Amino acid sequence: MEKEIIHAYCIQLHGTTYDYQEEWQADRYHIGGKMYAMLGGNRTGKPVLTLKCEPSRAEELREAYASIIPGYYMNKTHWNSIYMDAEDVPMDLVENLIQHSYELVFNKLTKKAQQEIQLIGNPSNK
Protein backbone atom coordinates (compact mmCIF):
# COMPACT_ATOMS: atom_id res chain seq x y z
CA MET A 1 0.00 0.00 0.00
CA GLU A 2 1.31 3.37 -0.92
CA LYS A 3 0.48 6.44 1.13
CA GLU A 4 -0.17 8.52 -2.00
CA ILE A 5 -2.74 6.03 -3.31
CA ILE A 6 -4.53 5.92 0.06
CA HIS A 7 -4.50 9.73 0.25
CA ALA A 8 -5.92 10.07 -3.28
CA TYR A 9 -8.65 7.53 -2.57
CA CYS A 10 -9.71 9.15 0.71
CA ILE A 11 -9.64 12.73 -0.53
CA GLN A 12 -11.96 11.91 -3.45
CA LEU A 13 -14.72 10.65 -1.14
CA HIS A 14 -17.48 13.27 -1.12
CA GLY A 15 -17.14 15.84 1.67
CA THR A 16 -13.82 14.52 2.99
CA THR A 17 -11.56 16.94 4.81
CA TYR A 18 -7.92 16.27 5.56
CA ASP A 19 -5.49 17.41 8.22
CA TYR A 20 -2.10 16.47 9.58
CA GLN A 21 -1.84 15.88 13.32
CA GLU A 22 1.72 16.97 14.11
CA GLU A 23 1.69 15.53 17.63
CA TRP A 24 0.81 12.05 16.32
CA GLN A 25 2.64 12.45 13.00
CA ALA A 26 -0.52 11.25 11.30
CA ASP A 27 -2.59 12.14 8.25
CA ARG A 28 -6.28 12.19 9.18
CA TYR A 29 -9.40 12.08 7.01
CA HIS A 30 -12.77 13.31 8.25
CA ILE A 31 -16.38 13.50 7.17
CA GLY A 32 -18.56 16.01 9.00
CA GLY A 33 -15.74 16.69 11.45
CA LYS A 34 -15.47 13.02 12.46
CA MET A 35 -12.41 10.95 11.60
CA TYR A 36 -12.83 7.86 9.45
CA ALA A 37 -9.20 7.14 8.46
CA MET A 38 -5.73 7.82 9.82
CA LEU A 39 -2.33 7.14 8.29
CA GLY A 40 0.28 7.05 11.02
CA GLY A 41 2.67 4.71 12.74
CA ASN A 42 2.73 2.31 15.65
CA ARG A 43 5.07 2.78 18.63
CA THR A 44 8.04 1.52 16.60
CA GLY A 45 7.19 3.81 13.67
CA LYS A 46 5.86 1.04 11.43
CA PRO A 47 3.28 2.71 9.13
CA VAL A 48 -0.37 1.75 9.70
CA LEU A 49 -3.71 2.73 8.19
CA THR A 50 -6.43 2.84 10.84
CA LEU A 51 -10.10 2.59 9.84
CA LYS A 52 -13.44 2.35 11.59
CA CYS A 53 -15.12 -1.03 11.10
CA GLU A 54 -18.33 -2.77 12.10
CA PRO A 55 -17.30 -4.93 15.11
CA SER A 56 -18.12 -8.41 13.78
CA ARG A 57 -16.49 -7.62 10.43
CA ALA A 58 -13.46 -6.21 12.27
CA GLU A 59 -12.94 -9.52 14.07
CA GLU A 60 -13.40 -11.56 10.87
CA LEU A 61 -10.75 -9.44 9.13
CA ARG A 62 -8.29 -9.85 12.00
CA GLU A 63 -8.73 -13.62 11.83
CA ALA A 64 -8.33 -13.71 8.05
CA TYR A 65 -5.33 -11.36 7.65
CA ALA A 66 -2.20 -11.29 9.79
CA SER A 67 -1.59 -7.66 8.78
CA ILE A 68 -4.93 -6.45 10.18
CA ILE A 69 -4.83 -5.81 13.92
CA PRO A 70 -7.06 -4.09 16.50
CA GLY A 71 -7.00 -0.32 16.01
CA TYR A 72 -3.71 1.12 17.19
CA TYR A 73 -4.41 3.73 19.91
CA MET A 74 -8.13 3.46 19.09
CA ASN A 75 -11.17 1.61 20.41
CA LYS A 76 -10.27 -2.01 19.65
CA THR A 77 -13.89 -2.99 19.05
CA HIS A 78 -14.66 -0.38 16.39
CA TRP A 79 -11.29 0.26 14.71
CA ASN A 80 -8.77 -1.85 12.79
CA SER A 81 -5.23 -0.98 11.78
CA ILE A 82 -3.61 -2.37 8.65
CA TYR A 83 0.16 -2.51 8.32
CA MET A 84 1.07 -0.43 5.25
CA ASP A 85 3.69 -2.96 4.15
CA ALA A 86 1.05 -5.72 4.16
CA GLU A 87 1.37 -8.09 1.26
CA ASP A 88 -1.56 -10.25 2.35
CA VAL A 89 -4.17 -7.46 2.10
CA PRO A 90 -5.15 -6.62 -1.52
CA MET A 91 -5.60 -2.96 -2.47
CA ASP A 92 -9.21 -3.51 -3.55
CA LEU A 93 -9.98 -4.74 -0.02
CA VAL A 94 -8.25 -1.67 1.45
CA GLU A 95 -10.40 0.60 -0.75
CA ASN A 96 -13.50 -1.35 0.30
CA LEU A 97 -12.56 -0.93 3.97
CA ILE A 98 -11.95 2.81 3.52
CA GLN A 99 -15.40 3.14 1.93
CA HIS A 100 -16.93 1.06 4.76
CA SER A 101 -15.30 3.32 7.37
CA TYR A 102 -16.45 6.47 5.56
CA GLU A 103 -20.04 5.18 5.39
CA LEU A 104 -20.10 4.12 9.07
CA VAL A 105 -19.04 7.62 10.14
CA PHE A 106 -21.27 9.41 7.62
CA ASN A 107 -24.33 7.41 8.73
CA LYS A 108 -23.77 8.43 12.38
CA LEU A 109 -23.85 12.15 11.51
CA THR A 110 -27.02 14.13 12.06
CA LYS A 111 -29.43 14.26 9.13
CA LYS A 112 -28.69 17.98 8.83
CA ALA A 113 -24.92 17.35 8.61
CA GLN A 114 -25.50 14.59 6.05
CA GLN A 115 -27.62 16.91 3.90
CA GLU A 116 -25.03 19.70 4.08
CA ILE A 117 -22.31 17.29 2.96
CA GLN A 118 -24.47 16.00 0.11
CA LEU A 119 -25.00 19.56 -1.11
CA ILE A 120 -21.27 20.34 -1.20
CA GLY A 121 -19.98 20.43 -4.72
CA ASN A 122 -23.35 19.79 -6.36
CA PRO A 123 -23.85 22.84 -8.64
CA SER A 124 -27.50 21.97 -9.29
CA ASN A 125 -28.24 22.62 -5.60
CA LYS A 126 -26.63 26.05 -5.37
Rank of each mutant, 00 (worst) to 15 (best):
E4L: 11
E4M: 08
E4F: 00
I5S: 15
H7Y: 13
A8W: 01
A8S: 14
Y9S: 01
Q12A: 07
Q12F: 02
L13V: 01
L13P: 01
H14Q: 07
H14G: 02
T16Q: 02
T17S: 14
T17E: 11
Y20W: 03
Y20I: 11
Q21R: 06
E22R: 13
E22D: 13
E23Q: 09
E23N: 10
Q25P: 12
A26K: 05
D27H: 05
D27E: 14
D27Y: 01
R28Q: 15
R28P: 09
H30I: 00
K34R: 15
M35K: 05
Y36G: 06
L39G: 00
G40E: 06
G40C: 08
G41W: 14
T44L: 15
K46F: 00
L49R: 13
L51V: 10
K52D: 04
K52T: 06
K52S: 06
C53H: 05
P55G: 09
S56V: 09
R57K: 14
E59V: 13
E59N: 10
E63F: 07
A64M: 14
A64C: 12
Y65Q: 10
Y65W: 13
A66R: 11
P70V: 13
Y72W: 10
M74T: 10
K76T: 08
K76D: 03
H78I: 04
N80E: 08
Y83G: 00
Y83R: 15
A86T: 07
E87P: 02
V89F: 06
V89P: 01
V89N: 09
